[in-house]
Design a protein around this nucleic acid. Structure first.
Length: 343
RNA sequence: UGGGGUGUGGCCAAGUGGUAAGGCAUCGGUUUUUGGUGCCGACAUUCGGGGGUUCGAAUCCCUCCACCCCAG
């Protein structure tokens, strides 16, 4: 039988570098692909993508595999960046990385790879896949399934996650053992295209904002002014610039009035939810039964908590803090990722 | 220009003779793919101004200034 052709998404980090190395060792016909996503080139700001591309290429050369660059700038801008900006405009708090996986990595990239002759794709995600079923990674600490719940069953059938059974320290060690150029590269964080600018400044470039009142819900009085309600999300503490006494936390906002509501009460009802409505439900394999006992993760790296889904209402076993509209609830049945929805 | 009160870093606030707590905010770092949270660190040579007493004062005295309350 002929060898399976796998296209590996290489970001220039350790994880995807080792992913490619492992696949080569396992006998696959590997091609490295750097996805050129949309970035914002600001004067005076150094964009790391060029370095990442160079790193990815360097590793590919090291491994002796083919290397390509796929340009997804337009798709990425439309599906991820614009989505994010729109959500913020509507007063919500989106998760662009989930959208990036759904729309770019496991759609655009997958399609482009297949078109280019690949049989499968692979990425350095910490997750496991088995017969099109997504499962949590062995390394609980690194599990990235939260970001992957909106991938389709079909896409997963053509996907490999070679790192799913490894822990991060093992990955580092194996990368070092192979002298991969990226072995000790620092972990990347934050929204890639926003870079070091910060979400505030980024949004500020696409949306004109006006100052508005910050209102204490306990006293109903204004305690200060903000520079745009769009910049604040549920549970947020910093950036209000209001001093004195105890800290204030955002408990809500009114985009039309451009008002941000805050409280000093850590137990404020708005801050703790035990029930949330989900929309845009997505199931990888099949929908769980109504009322079935499940586990849910309300944010990346949060622990799994018991929950039940009735219709589109998610009932949590214990109250969760600062569950903002636009964020995702990802449902699990043990190790299996069922899918989830947007709050 | 009658009586009372207050004035400590951007904000709140300890400290009443012994050489400026703490909190909030802010800034930086960190939590190893979102927002946010949390955590760690930095942050007043100076206590409304000016004199004086004292070995030594934010703390005592004098005086000026500012603000608040009550009265009229």
């Amino acid at each position: 039988m002929s060898t399976v052709k796998v296209y590996v998404g290489m970001s220039g980090g350790v994880d995807s570098s080792l992913t490619a190395a492992l696949l080569v060792e396992q006998g696959y016909d590997v091609t490295g692909v750097y996805m050129k996503n949309w970035t914002q080139d600001l004067p005076g700001m150094k964009c790391p993508w060029a370095d990442d591309l160079a790193d990815a290429k360097r590793v590919a050369v090291q491994l002796g595999i083919d290397f390509k660059v796929f340009d997804f700038q337009n798709g990425y801008k439309q599906k991820v960046v614009d989505y994010m900006i729109d959500e913020y405009k509507n007063g919500r708090t989106p998760n662009p990385d989930i959208m990036c996986n759904q729309e770019v990595k496991f759609k655009l990239f997958l399609d482009a790879a297949l078109e280019d002759g690949a049989d499968m794709i692979a990425t350095g995600h910490y997750a496991q896949v088995q017969d099109g079923v997504l499962k949590r990674a062995i390394d609980d600490n690194k599990d990235q399934t939260y970001f992957l719940y909106r991938i389709t069953h079909e896409a997963l059938q053509k996907t490999l996650f070679p790192l799913g059974a490894m822990t991060k320290p093992e990955v580092r060690a194996e990368a070092e053992k192979r002298n991969l150029f990226t072995a000790s590269k620092k972990e990347s964080m934050g929204i890639c295209f926003v870079g070091s600018v910060g979400i505030r400044e980024f949004l500020g470039q696409y949306i004109t904002t006006e100052p508005g009142e910050i209102i204490d819900t306990q006293t109903k009085k204004s305690v200060g002014q903000h520079d745009g309600a769009i910049f604040f999300t549920l549970g947020q503490r910093h950036g209000l610039n209001v001093g004195g006494g105890l800290p204030y936390y955002v408990v809500g906002k009114d985009m039309d009035k451009n008002e941000v509501y805050v409280t000093r009460d850590l137990n404020d009802k708005e801050l703790w939810r035990k029930q949330v409505e989900l929309s845009s439900l997505h199931w990888i394999d099949q929908k769980p039964a109504d009322g079935q006992k499940l586990q849910v993760r309300m944010r990346h790296r949060a622990s799994l908590i018991d929950a039940k889904l009735k219709g589109s209402t998610l009932i949590l076993g214990e109250p969760q803090r600062a569950i903002a509209a636009g964020q995702s609830a990802v449902l699990y049945d043990g190790q299996v990722v069922l899918g989830g929805g947007i709050i």
